[in-house]
Simulated assay, not measured.
Amino acid sequence: MPLKNFRLDERLERDSELVTVLGLCQLRLMKDSRWPWLLLVPQREGISEIFELTPLDQTLLTFETNSVAAALQKATGAKKINVGAIGNIVRQLHVHVIGRSEGDANWPKPVWGYGTAEPYRDGAELQLLNKLIEAL
């Protein structure tokens, strides 16, 4: 369950769907089928940088990021897992975990700002989430 005093940035809420809540983070799936793209959002109010987290929360974030990245690779067979906490536009701390493979949309360039998001169709989202949850 999300913490009572925690509010998700409206852009993150609009552009992603909640998958589950881990120990520290909300695990969210971006609404863009071009890449298997997850977000980890630490449920801490007013935090925009990793170093602003307590040492324990930093450890939890690292553990959850590594667990999700490994599960994403196992679930998708992605050749490369990109992990980044950029936050130039959305200031609320969030970590992107993106599966990349040669030949995907915009390979090898970044996913940000490329083209238009494509929604999941024909149960592909549920299929990905089931594989991901099994891998976790």
Rank of each mutant, 00 (worst) to 15 (best):
84 G>A: 15
94 H>R: 04
46 G>K: 01
44 R>G: 07
55 P>I: 13
74 K>D: 06
78 A>Q: 12
85 A>K: 05
71 A>C: 14
87 G>W: 05
88 N>P: 02
60 L>I: 09
46 G>L: 01
59 T>L: 14
71 A>D: 14
88 N>C: 02
44 R>C: 06
73 Q>F: 08
96 H>N: 08
84 G>M: 04
44 R>A: 02
65 T>K: 07
72 L>D: 00
79 K>P: 02
80 K>Q: 14
70 A>D: 13
93 L>W: 00
49 E>I: 06
64 E>G: 08
68 V>A: 14
66 N>F: 14
81 I>S: 04
68 V>R: 13
55 P>Q: 09
93 L>Q: 03
78 A>D: 02
63 F>L: 15
47 I>E: 03
51 F>L: 14
69 A>N: 05
51 F>P: 02
51 F>S: 12
57 D>Y: 10
55 P>M: 14
73 Q>H: 12
89 I>Q: 12
86 I>V: 11
82 N>F: 15
73 Q>P: 09
81 I>H: 03
46 G>S: 01
68 V>E: 06
54 T>L: 13
67 S>F: 05
93 L>V: 00
85 A>M: 11
83 V>W: 02
90 V>M: 06
51 F>G: 02
71 A>G: 03
83 V>T: 15
84 G>P: 05
72 L>A: 03
58 Q>A: 07
58 Q>M: 09
64 E>Q: 14
66 N>K: 15
96 H>R: 14
77 G>L: 10
58 Q>I: 06
90 V>C: 01
80 K>D: 05
89 I>H: 08
46 G>A: 05
50 I>D: 02
53 L>N: 09
86 I>F: 14
54 T>R: 12
57 D>S: 11
71 A>F: 01
51 F>R: 15
73 Q>G: 12
54 T>D: 11
89 I>P: 00
56 L>W: 08
62 T>Q: 13
84 G>Y: 03
86 I>N: 10
61 L>P: 07
67 S>Y: 02
59 T>F: 06
67 S>W: 06
92 Q>V: 01
64 E>N: 13
71 A>P: 08
46 G>V: 02
58 Q>S: 09
63 F>K: 13
96 H>E: 03
